[in-house]
């Protein structure tokens, strides 16, 4: 860890590289599980967003910042972090347009209970997108500083 390994891929760490490659799909899948199982068990947008971001952070740690930025460009991350908030607030405005109060999901479907389900799904998705975007963007911001551009 002496010299900011994040700029350079850990080419000589075979176990880390192979291990990360095996783990990352499961981390991302687990994040989605946490997201969509949040209605039934512990979890939700915040936790899922952090775990989803952790998958990309792990990739960046092992394979280098350049590679993870190619997989997920900083622009996309910035857009994500704003998009989630917009989605959340957008649900609120849609419910207002449909005649309910702000963030009153009951009006989203004929059955208020279904409306609540849709609303919570969309809102949690917004939280996921923002938290994911912010976490990865902050990681990019920190990791990118120790590196001299070629």
């Amino acid at each position: 860890m002496k010299k900011t390994p994040w700029g350079t891929p850990m080419d000589d760490r075979v176990i880390l590289r192979v291990g990360a490659k095996i783990l990352i799909p499961f981390i991302l899948l687990f994040a989605l599980y946490v997201q969509f199982h949040g209605d039934y068990g512990p979890g939700g947008g915040f936790q899922a967003g952090v775990i989803f971001a952790a998958g990309f952070v792990l990739y960046g740690l092992i394979y280098g910042l350049e590679n993870v930025k190619r997989a997920l460009p900083p622009q996309a991350v910035y857009i994500c972090s704003a998009l989630g908030v917009l989605l959340f607030a957008g649900v609120g405005y849609v419910t207002m347009a449909l005649g309910g109060a702000f963030l009153d999901y009951g009006v989203l479907a004929h059955d208020p209970e279904h409306g609540q389900h849709y609303g919570i799904l969309l809102v949690e998705l917004g939280v996921l997108i923002t938290v994911f975007g912010v976490m990865v963007a902050v990681f990019y911001a920190f990791a990118g500083r120790g590196r001299v551009d070629k």
């Binding site: 039934y40 068990g41 939700g44 208020p112 609540q116 609303g119 919570i120």
Partner: peptide, 18 residues
């Protein structure tokens, strides 16, 4: 009212949506 087993999620996302 919400129809979701996890009350924490109901409170977070719906009752306390703001």
């Amino acid at each position: 009212e919400i129809g979701i087993p996890n009350v924490v999620t109901s409170v977070l996302a719906s009752y306390r949506g703001y």
